[in-house]
Amino acid sequence: MTVPDSAQAGLNADTGMGTDAAARAGHIRSFVRRQGRVSNAQQRYHQEMMAKIGVPYAAARLDFDALFGRVAPRILEIGFGMGETSAVIAALHPENDYLGIEVHTPGVGSLCKLVAEKCLHNQRIIQHDAVEVLRDMLMPGSLAGAHIFFPDPWPKMRHHKRRLLQAPFVALLTSRLQPGGYLHCATDWEDYAQQMLAVLSAETLLENTVSGYAPRPEQRPQTKFEQRGRRLGHGVWDLVFRRRLDSLQAEDDRQNELA
């Protein structure tokens, strides 16, 4: 997962750069590439399944209909970890197509294994930087929804600039949602939840579906880690926003102002 530098926002306005151009100007990565142990099974499924469901990064727009072989709502997940939640959601909603982005090989291999075991036909994976995928590969207005579950909280104050949910990133992601498309985020760090709520609320093309934080939607199954945390009294905060139905004209006006 990655995030543009929050300081870039002021530069965008000064230089007249649009959302895509701003992302192209450079960003601070919200992930650190760790070697992490890859099990034999993860390595095997990664090698076998990515040849079938993997999507190589390329600076060219994806044709979703050709990729999935049908027309259906497309949901993006950024940073799917080990993929347990991704596989459950894809299995429960065969009517949707799911594109997951993750950089770490053990997690990609784990989801590949789950896709094979569950015979999922509606899951694809890109192992690459999320900002570059959003910027270069996804058409504006192409997503029915997006999931960002438990992104790295970067808890130290000096690292907060690496957090994924910053205004420039949210603007880029929102541009890829269709009007009415949703953005569902979740975190177990309260101060990050507060930042998420502030940033998402400030994005003029989005609207909150509730007042403040949302009850956990049924579409997000609880992980074992989350269940354990709740037993220990740890909080989890869900946020569900939607792209405004009247946002196409608003986005055009914003781009014209930046031009």
Rank of each mutant, 00 (worst) to 15 (best):
residue 112 C to F: 02
residue 190 E to P: 00
residue 204 T to A: 14
residue 207 E to W: 00
residue 167 A to Q: 14
residue 31 F to G: 01
residue 124 R to N: 11
residue 191 D to G: 02
residue 202 A to C: 06
residue 240 V to W: 10
residue 239 L to E: 09
residue 133 V to C: 04
residue 218 E to N: 11
residue 150 F to N: 09
residue 213 Y to H: 11
residue 51 A to W: 00
residue 92 L to Y: 01
residue 143 L to P: 07
residue 152 D to F: 08
residue 113 K to G: 03
residue 239 L to A: 11
residue 187 T to H: 01
residue 185 C to N: 05
residue 180 G to Q: 09
residue 20 D to A: 14
residue 247 S to G: 08
residue 79 G to C: 09
residue 149 F to E: 03
residue 97 D to G: 08
residue 69 G to F: 06
residue 128 H to L: 04
residue 226 E to R: 13
residue 105 T to M: 05
residue 3 V to R: 10
residue 228 R to N: 10
residue 5 D to W: 08
residue 209 T to S: 12
residue 124 R to H: 08
residue 63 D to R: 09
residue 254 R to T: 00
residue 72 A to C: 03
residue 1 M to G: 11
residue 28 I to V: 15
residue 29 R to G: 08
residue 149 F to I: 15
residue 64 F to M: 05
residue 28 I to D: 12
residue 90 A to L: 05
residue 207 E to R: 07
residue 251 E to Y: 03
residue 122 N to R: 08
residue 14 D to C: 06
residue 163 R to K: 07
residue 197 L to P: 05
residue 76 L to Y: 01
residue 17 M to K: 13
residue 106 P to C: 01
residue 51 A to H: 02
residue 110 S to T: 10
residue 185 C to S: 09
residue 112 C to D: 06
residue 56 P to G: 09
residue 230 R to C: 12
residue 109 G to P: 04
residue 106 P to L: 00
residue 184 H to I: 15
residue 125 I to G: 12
residue 196 M to E: 02
residue 92 L to S: 10
residue 90 A to V: 02
residue 220 R to C: 04
residue 185 C to D: 04
residue 209 T to P: 00
residue 45 Y to I: 01
residue 43 Q to E: 14
residue 115 V to S: 13
residue 46 H to T: 10
residue 31 F to H: 13
residue 7 A to Q: 14
residue 61 R to F: 01
residue 68 F to T: 02
residue 259 A to S: 08
residue 153 P to S: 04
residue 34 R to N: 10
residue 205 L to R: 06
residue 213 Y to W: 10
residue 24 R to F: 10
residue 259 A to C: 07
residue 10 G to Y: 15
residue 258 L to P: 03
residue 231 R to E: 14
residue 105 T to P: 14
residue 198 A to D: 06
residue 94 P to R: 15
residue 66 A to Y: 00
residue 152 D to N: 14
residue 196 M to D: 02
residue 36 G to H: 11
residue 224 K to R: 15
residue 3 V to E: 10
residue 47 Q to F: 12
residue 186 A to I: 11
residue 145 G to E: 03
residue 119 C to H: 14
residue 81 G to V: 06
residue 35 Q to V: 13
residue 199 V to Q: 09
residue 108 V to W: 00
residue 234 H to Y: 13
residue 122 N to M: 12
residue 68 F to I: 00
residue 44 R to S: 11
residue 56 P to F: 01
residue 251 E to K: 15
residue 175 S to F: 01
residue 189 W to E: 08
